[in-house]
């Protein structure tokens, strides 16, 4: 079974057909996907800006991350779930799109950046938690995060089926 066979099987399944044809389901999925994007990217960029130095004398970094990152994760769960369901409906078209490697590649890059940040400079956050300039690596992590998530949105819009 080739990948194309598998995608055709997904697209032809009763589940995929239901996703495509149940009245109003697709617009509802799209709306929930957008809400998920707002939660995921909105709170991620708010954290990124604090890492870069915005408002460094007001909220401690740990306050910002502990409050906003769970919201970001909830947003990710929502986009992943709604995205996966919509993917089933139009699997062959998504994979055939030249925007697909950009979108998935940028999501992967955002994930690597998250891992590097949390295994790395975030371990010493107590040293720059409040009223201290962020270390350069934290500023880089915040910038990479904001740029990659913005890029994911752009690639998503170009992911025409």
């Amino acid at each position: 079974m080739t990948i194309l066979d598998a995608l055709n099987w997904v697209e032809g399944s009763a589940f995929a057909q239901a996703v495509r044809t149940i009245p109003h389901l697709y617009p509802v999925l799209e709306s929930a996907h957008i809400l998920g994007i707002a939660l995921l990217v909105g709170s991620a960029i708010a954290v990124d800006l604090r890492l870069i130095g915005l408002g460094k004398d007001v909220p401690p970094v740990i306050l910002v991350t502990r409050y906003l990152l769970p919201l970001s994760h909830a947003g990710f769960a929502l986009v992943a779930l709604t995205g996966l369901v919509m993917f089933c409906g139009i699997a062959t078209s998504v994979v055939a799109s030249p925007a697909a490697p950009w979108k998935f590649g940028l999501i992967g890059l955002a994930g690597v950046n998250i891992a590097i940040f949390h295994f790395g400079i975030y371990r010493q956050v107590d040293a720059w938690n409040l009223s201290k300039p962020s270390p350069l690596t934290a500023k880089i992590a915040g910038s990479v995060s904001a740029l990659t998530w913005s890029g994911v949105i752009v690639a998503g819009r170009f992911l025409a089926y």
């Binding site: 996907h33 139009i90 999501i107 992967g108 955002a110 998250i114 975030y122 998503g156 992911l159």
Partner: peptide, 21 residues
């Protein structure tokens, strides 16, 4: 956070998008 990051990477290849032209 680490687990979330790993989960994110796992799901990265399954995430589609909506777009219309």
């Amino acid at each position: 956070l680490l687990i979330s990051g790993a989960t994110l990477m796992t799901f990265a290849l399954t995430l589609p998008a909506m777009a219309h032209h």
